[in-house]
Computed example of a mutant assay.
Amino acid sequence: MTEGFYLYGIFPPPGPKTIETQGLDKQPIFSHTVEGFTFLYSEAQQSRYLASRRNLITHTKVLEEAMENGSRTLLPLQFGLIVPDWETVVQDLLQHQAESLHFFLEKLEGKREVSLKIYWETNAELNALLEENPALKARRDNLEGKQLSMDEVIQIGQALEQEMEGRKQDIISRFEEVLIPFAFEIKENDVLTETMIYNTAFLINWDAESDFGEQLEAIDAEFSPRLKIRYNNFTPPYNFVELRE
């Protein structure tokens, strides 16, 4: 017995062709057009899906295959959206959000999301900073082995933090100097670890990705071997769609 329809994303009609990737619970993927919007869906076998790694990957793979097959303009829906019938879609979504949906479909036409994460080795960068700044290194070294007051601890800590922040911004500025001109829009996301210094998505022309990737490799080479980068050149554009209640 089905629990309704599990929705993956919204496309302009006619939407994606056949999707070979199986959906959640290994269900086949279908498309259905209602009031000028094509929804990619499978029959839900559960009333609620756990946001497990496997389920999240399946959700994303369905959308990625649709894009790979030529349905480039996509409004990805957040994981876990189940509706009992298409009348509910009309009443709860389209009656209130049709204008916004049209806006985002137009905004994303011919564009793709790519994302960049930059990491550095904090201790290595700190040591390099001290070697490049003898005065600051001498100041820190002179305090070693001494019992410091709280003010002294704060002062040297603030000085090191300020210099490290400047070092970080120099790296970020170099990447953005070259990459931002490709972007119609960017979305800066939170850094997730101590070693991550940059986490940003770019909305670029679909056909500009190869040039974007080449420029990224060139900048990375400038900083080698100081940095590690994680570049995703193909992902549903979650960062550039925000539906409001």
Rank of each mutant, 00 (worst) to 15 (best):
100 S>W: 00
206 W>K: 06
218 A>R: 07
208 A>G: 06
49 Y>N: 15
223 F>M: 08
59 H>Y: 13
180 I>Y: 08
225 P>K: 07
119 Y>N: 12
14 P>H: 07
8 Y>N: 14
45 Q>R: 13
161 E>W: 04
46 Q>V: 03
178 V>H: 07
153 V>M: 12
102 H>W: 01
153 V>S: 09
245 E>P: 14
130 L>E: 11
97 Q>V: 01
200 T>R: 04
15 G>D: 08
207 D>A: 08
234 F>A: 14
80 G>A: 10
78 Q>E: 14
2 T>G: 03
240 F>S: 09
139 R>H: 15
116 L>C: 04
213 G>T: 03
213 G>N: 05
127 N>I: 13
244 R>F: 00
28 P>N: 06
20 E>W: 14
224 S>G: 03
153 V>R: 15
173 S>D: 10
84 P>D: 07
228 K>D: 08
88 T>V: 04
45 Q>D: 10
53 R>K: 05
238 Y>F: 05
155 Q>F: 14
214 E>L: 00
66 A>C: 13
56 L>C: 12
235 T>G: 05
108 L>H: 04
228 K>C: 00
244 R>A: 02
117 K>Y: 02
60 T>C: 12
135 A>I: 09
77 L>V: 10
145 G>S: 07
147 Q>C: 05
111 K>Y: 03
10 I>E: 08
84 P>S: 06
242 E>C: 01
60 T>R: 14
98 A>E: 09
193 T>S: 14
16 P>N: 12
168 K>V: 06
137 K>T: 11
